[in-house]
Design a protein around this nucleic acid. Structure first.
Lengths: 153, 153
DNA sequence: GCTCGAAAGGTCAGGAAAGGTCAAAGTCGT
DNA sequence: ACGACTTTGACCTTTCCTGACCTTTCGAGC
């Protein structure tokens, strides 16, 4: 754990711990100066460490007065769960597999009947008019997004 | 949030909050003097932040006794959520309009910062690898699905 | 009424100040 | 020596702010 990216990561996480609302805002250039590295190193840290899968969202703005904002999601889908969802769903999924995944989540008590029905209905409605060859991937995107939102705490 | 445009934006929004009928009227020159900037800076703020997509309408009049009027459009009206969202998003949507809509929902207090950022991030991630000609429709599907899920309850 | 000048607001292009991207080079563990 | 991860730097895009110049409206004086 001795490289620069790790130091920057833990510095940012420390800031986040102490931040109200689990959100910090800073400038890329300043941070880079602080760690004496090129600015693009900051992007590297952000894209490898502060991803939605790991429970973070990064928003930025360019131009004068630009900034980088890191939000720590209140729902932190546990590492396992996030990667499990990712692995289970993948880049595309059939309707049958989507259904059975939803049923399984309901069985495990992670989703209630109403949520499951709602997600199922949205999946059907949003995919039916699509060209068949795109349904699988869109269904996967939709399912991942909604499940992530529902499993938050 | 450290630049002039942001300060002017939040000043105007504060005025709007306290205004009856969600409408304010002011003079460009005065406002510019107040913030010690050139008048055209006001136009910049108006065209970038108070757009119809974000839920505002701006009317102006030149000449003696000229003015700038900003009206805030509110969602709220009774119409049920689902059809309102459907109407607002439609079959496809650009990234810019999606951002505007999310900001508007946050403005209205229907979404918090974290949820907005999360939805924005998912839209970007799930959309970037797609063929450009499909992005608009997939983005619309994802946005509708997530917003409905978040506003349900 | 007309004309003209003053008093609004509008437009646009350019420079400066952020942050973004990508590929090549470097490092490190196995 | 290989592969994965890290670091760097050259070049790109977006956003902000200003200033020079343009258009519209009103009203005073003819």
């Amino acid at each position: 754990m001795g490289n620069l990216a790790d130091y920057i990561e833990s510095y940012l996480k420390r800031l986040l711990e102490n931040a109200e609302q689990g959100m910090i805002e800073l400038q890329r250039r300043e941070l880079a100066e602080m760690f004496r590295c090129v600015p693009s190193q900051i992007n590297y840290v952000l894209t490898t460490r502060f991803t939605p899968d790991r429970g973070y969202v990064v928003e930025t703005r360019r131009g004068g007065g630009g900034y980088i904002r890191i939000v720590r999601l209140s729902f932190r889908p546990s590492q396992d769960r996030a990667s499990l969802i990712e692995a289970e769903i993948g880049d595309e999924i059939t309707e049958r597999r989507a259904d059975s995944l939803l049923l399984r989540l309901e069985d495990e008590g992670l989703l209630d009947e109403g949520d499951r029905a709602f997600v199922k209905a949205v999946l059907e409605r949003e995919t039916e008019r699509l060209h068949p060859s795109y349904r699988g991937t869109v269904r996967a995107s939709l399912l991942k997004a909604m499940v992530m939102l529902l499993l938050r705490e």
